[in-house]
């Protein structure tokens, strides 16, 4: 269900926890599964549950609680913009307006070509770099002026 490469990564995560606490690796296992599949289907979550000897419901609980897991199909690039107060004081809302205009979509929407999904984020712990955004959860982009947003969209569209 998951590639050998993903399983290897999960196995590494498992070495961090006591042998009888495999459940501790569920957050990283789901993140690894999501990196491979794009989003978490019930089948993927069931597979993770079986792999970690957990009840499926316990995996669903984790996947639905933490907001960086994608529980629905998503664009190739998920762009999450922090709009919390410190970022809003330094141009986050203007950055969002620019994305809306450039992509023609609002929050939780995906462009018709399936390329971009726009999300509203909460504090990413980088308020000094506002406006801040994440591409596919793992790539943080700082000081996102309209020019830098245009550049980012151009790079990702290639």
């Amino acid at each position: 269900m998951l590639s050998a490469e993903s399983l290897k990564k999960i196995d590494y995560e498992l070495t961090k926890y006591p042998a009888d606490q495999k459940q501790s690796a569920v957050m990283s296992a789901l993140a690894i599964a999501q990196d491979e599949k794009g989003w978490l289907t019930t089948e993927t979550m069931d597979f993770v549950a079986e792999y970690l000897d957990m009840p499926s419901i316990a995996v669903y609980e984790v996947a639905t609680f933490y907001n960086m897991y994608n529980l629905q199909p998503i664009g190739k690039y998920k762009i999450t913009v922090c709009t919390n107060l410190p970022c809003a004081l330094s141009g986050a809302n203007e950055a969002v307006a620019h994305f809306r205009e450039r992509l023609g979509i609002g929050f939780n929407e995906t462009t018709t070509d399936g390329k971009f999904t726009l999300k509203e984020g909460e504090c990413m712990g980088a308020c000094g770099d506002a406006p801040v955004l994440l591409v596919n959860n793992k790539r943080m982009c700082s000081f996102m002026s309209n020019d830098k947003i245009d550049q980012l969209l151009e790079d990702l569209s290639k």
């Binding site: 961090k16 926890y17 459940q23 501790s24 957050m27 990283s28 970690l52 957990m54 609980e61 897991y69």
Partner: peptide, 26 residues
């Protein structure tokens, strides 16, 4: 060992963090 969160402010609360480390909702 390092363990990463995945988007839940509440896990900064110490006992929620422990729950999360145990692979549960925070």
């Amino acid at each position: 060992y390092n363990h990463h969160g995945y988007g839940a402010y509440i896990c900064g609360e110490e006992t929620a963090l422990l729950e999360s480390l145990e692979g549960k909702k925070g």
